[in-house]
């Protein structure tokens, strides 16, 4: 069971939930379950979200596994200069 934290902007699309408990083995499954529970998140999960797993930010990697008890944080994607 992972504890998924949402940034304020994303929480607004998920019934204002800042913390969600979800059982998921990887990022793809996490996204699928989030979409099922909060359809409002679907468009942003498609392209605009990065996943921080224990502090390390993953941008594009569905196959990344979520360790047990990992701290998951969803945030808007980054760009740089």
């Amino acid at each position: 069971m992972a504890e998924v934290n949402l940034s304020a902007a994303l929480a607004a699309l998920a019934d204002n939930e800042r913390q969600i408990q979800i059982e998921a083995k990887d990022i793809r499954e996490l996204f699928r379950k989030l979409e099922e529970r909060y359809p409002g998140l679907e468009p942003v999960l498609k392209n605009d979200v990065a996943v921080a797993i224990d502090g390390v930010i993953y941008r594009d990697n569905w196959s990344k596994e979520l360790p047990d008890d990992a701290e998951i944080f969803l945030m808007r994607r980054l760009t740089g200069g």
Binding site: N5, S7, A52, D54, G55, V56, I57, E71, F73, M75
Partner: peptide, 9 residues
């Protein structure tokens, strides 16, 4: 816990 959310490694 970072100010932007995640916990640092």
């Amino acid at each position: 816990r970072s100010s932007y959310g995640p916990v640092y490694g």
